[in-house]
């Protein structure tokens, strides 16, 4: 008889953004068949919906605390999932959107599980990025599209191409170096505007975007001049979309080299 205990495993899955609309059959079966499901979602009603899919659903929300470093919170979330994997359980980490898009926790959990010899898998989901393309009618291939986490964008010098789209994530905490806040305000967003003003005119129109999380909800699509961003109401789930401010610039040298090839 084989007495080896069942080996734990981890699947980090994405349930998409909107309740009932984006969950794939495969993701649902990962959730239903798990011994324990840890959930981190952006809408409390979605958390209620998930509670019906597995008998052991555990919210990761209690790890968040204003004044506590989010880095510590994230590590604790990883540890909570890994503890159950090490105990031999089939663990499912259930994340809103896509679990691998602007999401440290699922990537770290999978990396750690694999480094300890456990099987770990990421199942993609429909990200807020996907909803943004659909709701704003943007094709990232048309002009190119750059994505940055807002604080990282402020803290490091980046080579921005103002002839492409620029999408900034987590603008609700733009410029927070403490990692201990759930929101930053007008002064922090003014610094963000000053950084953006290196590349964009202050009257350039930008979009504060929030995808619907409930089926009958409409997305937030608020257009405003860049200079008005500090005074705008910006929440945890808002994303900033900045349209191209310049036309594409032809590279004449490369064009003539290519012309010489034909």
């Amino acid at each position: 008889m084989n007495n080896t205990p069942a080996k734990g495993s981890l699947a980090c899955v994405g349930i998409g953004m909107t309740l009932g609309s984006h969950l794939s059959a495969r993701t649902r079966s990962y959730i239903e068949q798990a011994d324990v499901a840890f959930v981190l979602v952006s809408d409390g009603i979605i958390e209620l919906w998930l509670q019906d899919m597995n008998k052991d659903v555990r919210s990761l929300q209690p790890y968040y605390q204003e004044g506590k470093s989010r880095m510590k919170t994230y590590r604790q979330m990883v540890e909570a999932m890994l503890t159950e994997v090490r105990a031999g359980k089939r663990v499912c980490g259930v994340f809103y959107g896509h679990p691998g898009v602007f999401a440290w926790v699922p990537h770290k959990a999978i990396e750690t599980a694999r480094s300890e010899g456990f099987s770990a898998h990421m199942e993609p989901g429909i990200s807020s990025e996907d909803c943004l393309y659909a709701d704003l009618g943007i094709d990232p291939g048309a002009r190119g599209c750059q994505h940055y986490e807002a604080s990282q964008f402020m803290l490091y010098r980046r080579c921005i191409d103002p002839s492409a789209w620029l999408i900034l994530w987590q603008i609700g905490i733009a410029g927070d170096r403490t990692l201990k806040r759930f929101s930053t305000g007008e002064a922090h967003r003014q610094v963000l505007v000053d950084v953006l003003a290196r590349h964009y005119p202050l009257d350039h129109e930008v979009v504060v975007y929030r995808a619907a999380t409930l089926p009958f909800q409409s997305p937030r699509i608020e257009c405003l001049a860049l200079e008005r961003l500090p005074l705008a109401e910006v929440g945890m789930a808002d994303t900033l979309a900045i349209p191209p401010a310049r036309p594409l610039e032809a590279d004449d040298e490369i064009r003539s080299r290519l012309a010489a090839l034909v």
Partner: peptide, 24 residues
């Protein structure tokens, strides 16, 4: 289509949804 009211009725407040640090 009153989402805020539905949240109240279901006793839900907006969860925190940050999952990545800007700077590790």
């Amino acid at each position: 289509k009153d989402v805020a009211q539905l949240q109240v009725l279901l006793q839900q407040k907006e969860p925190v949804c940050f999952v990545i640090p800007g700077e590790e």
